[in-house]
Simulated assay, not measured.
Amino acid sequence: MTAPRTPGRDVAVARGRRPGRSVGDDRESAILATAERLLQRRPFGEISVDELARGAGISRPTFYFYFPSKDAVLLTLLDRVTEEADAAACNVLDRLAEDPRSRWRELIARFHDTFGAHRAVVLACAEVRATNAEVRRLWARVLERWVQAVEAAVVAERRRGAAPDGLPARDLAIALNSMNERVWYATFAGDGPAIDERDVVDVLLELWLTCIYRTTDPARVG
């Protein structure tokens, strides 16, 4: 589920890394792995730069060669998770006409699997978003990509006669993506009331189908 991305320099700035550094650098990868591991045990606010450096086997001054702050580490983790989600979604929406119910389920399940595999990062970003403008801006850009992709898919389904006209496609896409975001947060965080993780994909699917097609069994058209 992809839309045009901001190339080159903007991506580097969004991640907080110094432009031109290799994402495959072993030390940078070690810092990121340390951060994700620590986030599985403690809130982001309790993690220090010293811990990140020590976990990566480097000194504090060396850490700053790779990242200007620990916030930049979190931004990079978020950027990588969302890129992974985009890669997982790939061309699923291009294949909706094959079987709308199966393709929408595939899309939701792939996002669920990606976010679930990196839930510590997802939860940390959700928690700091209110106070961290960079995280908020990056997430807004990501969400806009997904909104545009779903909006285009809904418009295409309406044009081929598979989905009825209704709410503006963009408004519907915003609402559905926002619903997923909140439902997943509650499920991953145990922030009740929350849907059991075993059921969350199917619950979201039924809601998406009902909102887009006004039925949970959309006809195969075209």
Rank of each mutant, 00 (worst) to 15 (best):
H118L: 09
P68Y: 01
L205C: 07
T114H: 01
A153Y: 02
L123R: 02
T2H: 07
A35H: 02
P168Q: 07
D86T: 11
T6H: 14
E134D: 15
R141I: 02
A97G: 07
R9K: 12
R54P: 00
D202W: 13
I31D: 00
E151T: 05
R137N: 12
A120Y: 00
C211L: 13
A117W: 06
R54K: 11
P168W: 04
T131K: 09
A89Q: 03
D191P: 05
C125M: 13
G20H: 07
G192R: 12
R198G: 05
V147S: 04
L138S: 03
R54H: 09
R220I: 11
A124G: 01
V147M: 05
A117C: 05
A56W: 11
W208T: 02
R37H: 12
A140I: 04
R182K: 10
A85S: 08
D71E: 15
V150D: 04
D199V: 06
V128S: 08
A85L: 06
S59R: 15
E197K: 12
A156T: 07
V23D: 12
E98G: 11
V142K: 05
D113E: 15
R141Q: 12
A85K: 01
V122K: 04
E151C: 05
V155M: 13
A30Y: 02
L93R: 04
Y213K: 03
A109R: 10
A153D: 03
T210P: 00
V142S: 10
E84D: 14
I195V: 15
R182P: 00
F111S: 09
L32H: 05
A169H: 00
D50M: 15
R27C: 00
G161N: 07
L32V: 08
R214L: 07
R141G: 13
L176P: 05
I212W: 02
A152G: 06
L205P: 07
L52V: 05
I31N: 00
L172P: 05
Y66S: 02
R141P: 06
R141M: 09
N91A: 11
H112I: 00
A56E: 11
R54N: 04
F115W: 02
A219C: 03
S59P: 14
A153W: 00
F115C: 01
I195L: 12
A173S: 14
K70T: 04
D171N: 13
D113T: 14
R220Y: 00
D199C: 06
T82P: 01
D202P: 13
L138W: 00
F44A: 08
T2C: 02
L93C: 06
V11H: 02
I174S: 01
A30P: 06
A14K: 02
T62K: 12
A162G: 04
D99C: 01
V92K: 01
S69T: 14
V49H: 02
P68A: 10
R5H: 10
E28L: 15
F111H: 13
Q148W: 04
